[in-house]
Design a binder for these strands. Structure first.
Lengths: 223, 223
DNA sequence: GTCAAGCCGATTGTCTGACAATCTTCATAT
DNA sequence: ATATGAAGATTGTCAGACAATCGGCTTGAC
């Protein structure tokens, strides 16, 4: 078999990645909540055709990252505090369960991985880079969710966290939030490392509750 | 203002409903797990164009009701027992929480509604119409989830239940499953009616566990 | 001046038709 | 029997079109 030279003169524009680009743009807060997304504009910006764009938009709609109102088109939904609260509550349910399970079954190897991500967050927390803080914190949870033994738990969790990504950056930049977050995460880590299910659940619950409180504060302040 | 005669000679084919049609087709088991969905065929069957169909398919893909493999197109995913188990476990988490909350906050009016749906299931259970059984049972949960005070809980639950709809018809047709299901549901209802949160949680947990067991049996039997 | 009616541009919903890239299948040759 | 290769089927993507609908603006009436 001849080696795959991977030389593609005109690669069919791989717009399987269009969804990812758009998702990232939404995460990074490029669009204001409530603002409309004009299809023709997005097409030129992304360099794809309207049918392709609309496919991507349907995916995002199903993920609840955008809303599509008939005859008005896609827009960024304004997240009410009521819905945000509901999301935090379900997140609590899922994370607590995942942390508890994780404590009982995580492998030494993955535990080291978790420790590394905690260190990464520690470093980010001592800086003022709130984007790095959010990213490393997300890594930490991801590892827990990925090792809880239930792929659905992970999948649902990811979907929910995506919807409140808007808050996360804001609340993390609250005075002292990163540091207290670090302490909470360390406690979760210690409990999991010790294989103490109950402690892991308790610590995890505390963490989500405090994150929720921080989000509420930053929202009330209209940050 | 002239009255809206609602006379549309050529109504723009409302294919906002295309997704619903397809979803229903999948629920009712019209497609075999693992079978491919040919776009051109679906287009003619549904009477819509390919771009429109592909939008609908993207929505279903995001709901995990179909899979789309690049260059192979959409297909019905074969649900492994491993994934099904994971779904049942998360369902347990959500339903238990919802039942518990419901017990504390449901209005008398909604309680009557719940009782009615229980009666409907009772009637279906005494018949042999397993489709009616599944539908009325789904109604019962829906009412609980809709009244638990957390819309996200409901939303996530609906998404998960959709993915195991394939099993539900099968396991409900197991000898005696409908009757024992009825007993379990009655216990959930009684607990909620009594405002007993703990009992509601316990009964709900039992119910999901038994449903899971029934699903496993019917799957092992290859029904 | 305020409010209603109606018009106009902007945008969406949907279709048709096209074509290259890729996968499948089957026949052929070694 | 296996590898090769060619034909057909299917997907990925685009361009262009047009009616339906929405939002805002102008106009006109009171």
């Amino acid at each position: 078999m001849p080696p795959d030279l991977n030389l593609r003169i005109s690669p069919r524009t791989v717009q399987r990645e269009t969804v990812d680009k758009l998702r990232l743009a939404i995460f990074s807060g490029l669009f204001q909540p409530g603002s409309r997304l004009i299809e023709s504009q997005l097409c030129t910006q992304l360099g794809i055709s309207r049918p392709s764009l609309r496919e991507a938009l349907r995916s995002l709609e199903a993920e609840r990252l955008i809303e599509i109102v008939p005859n008005r088109g896609p827009s960024i939904p304004a997240l009410s505090w009521e819905v945000a609260t509901a999301i935090y509550e379900v997140r609590e349910l899922l994370e607590v369960e995942a942390a508890g399970r994780c404590a009982l079954r995580i492998s030494p190897e993955q535990l080291r991985e978790l420790e590394k991500s905690l260190s990464a967050f520690e470093e980010a927390a001592s800086s003022n880079d709130s984007l790095a803080q959010v990213m490393t914190a997300a890594d930490f949870y991801s590892i827990i969710l990925a090792n809880c033994g239930n792929p659905i738990l992970e999948e649902v969790h990811r979907g929910l966290v995506a919807r409140i990504s808007f808050f996360r950056g804001r609340s993390m930049s609250l005075e002292g939030r990163a540091q207290s977050s670090l302490a909470e995460m360390r406690e979760i880590f210690e409990s999991i490392a010790a294989g103490d299910e109950k402690a892991a659940r308790k610590a995890s619950k505390q963490h989500v509750l405090r994150a929720k409180a921080a989000a509420k504060i930053s929202m009330d302040n209209g940050i």
